[in-house]
Design a protein around this nucleic acid. Structure first.
Lengths: 115, 115
DNA sequence: GATAGTACTATCCTTTAGGATACTGCTATC
DNA sequence: GATAGCAGTATCCTAAAGGATAGTACTATC
């Protein structure tokens, strides 16, 4: 596990893992991040790309992602205003975590279904 | 992101990440895994170690973890029977995922609180 | 024979996540 | 002046997660 085993170190590791889980969890955060990975998008564009999401959930998740600094919300003062959501550089710090989760998920699915 | 961008590859990656999230999520799975990391434990031992958990939740999570082959449940036919829960080798395959999540969580917390 | 421990299950309740549906105020176009 | 698109908000509802509390069947000890 590579995790220290003093009670304090364990609690700290546990908190850190839970923080990460909280940040990535929910049904829509990863689909949104993936949708934005191909470039900045507008609200209704995202709503159309991510099948099944409702505007309420999209709005909420975009706020959460912005609060965690994974995306920016830019208002262009045209008439009418144009609002664009884009990934930040900070969202890139998740790539190793996501890659590990993807790899583990792939092998786990093979293990479960393959027999 | 190191993730391919054909729609199929994206969907597959997304599914894999969600699988991993599902397997690790919930309030108690990681605390149980960590508690068992210091050796096999009995039901009431775990209940005492993991502060706040109720027997209902402990029982449910142990079943989930067993179904995913992260732990084994061994019945010793003594009188009265003794039941021991232990981590499997397969639980070790999570170590890289957990380590990445822990590291990311630690730096994220620093970023959020440190200003 | 009462008390305590083991390994749970059962029932009820609250909280949270998520979804359905409708609507708002704005502008641009037909 | 009607319709459609943009960027959401408001209201209501259901389902799942999680918690509180009690109880079961067994045994071992005092």
């Amino acid at each position: 596990m590579e995790i220290e085993h003093t009670p304090e170190a364990c609690t700290k590791s546990l908190m850190a893992v839970r923080d990460t889980l909280d940040v990535l969890n929910g049904k829509w955060k990863l689909p949104i991040i993936i949708a934005l990975d191909s470039g900045p998008k507008r609200f209704n564009e995202l709503e159309r790309m991510i099948t099944g999401i409702t505007p309420k959930l999209l709005s909420k998740e975009l706020r959460d992602l912005e609060a965690n600094e994974f995306i920016t919300r830019t208002v262009y003062p045209t008439t009418p205003v144009k609002i664009e959501y884009a990934l930040t550089g900070y969202s890139g710090t998740l790539s190793r975590v996501i890659a590990e989760m993807r790899d583990w998920g792939i092998q786990h699915r093979k293990k479960i279904t393959g027999r």
